[in-house]
């Protein structure tokens, strides 16, 4: 292998791993956001939200 091939391999594997890491975190965020929305649509609130519900209605 030429030197250029080693450099290319190092940058290539790094780009792949970082892209996979970023996509995994983005997918995790999206899935959790979806779950929270579903729970809220079913009328399930967090304890702190329910207590502050009156205050929010006044806004």
């Amino acid at each position: 292998m030429t030197h250029a091939a080693y450099v290319f391999a190092a940058y290539g594997v790094s780009a792949l791993v970082i892209a996979a890491l970023g996509i995994w975190i983005l997918l995790d965020q999206a899935a959790r956001r979806r779950e929270l929305k579903e729970l809220e649509q079913r009328g399930i609130r967090r304890r702190s939200d329910r207590q502050g519900a009156g205050k929010e209605a006044n806004k």
Binding site: I25, D28, Q29, R32, R33, E35, L36, L39, I44, R45, R46, R47
Partner: peptide
């Protein structure tokens, strides 16, 4: 994302 995950767990439990 982790804070949201823990919220989902807490809300499901509730």
């Amino acid at each position: 994302a982790e804070i949201w995950r823990r919220r989902v767990i807490a809300m499901r439990r509730l």
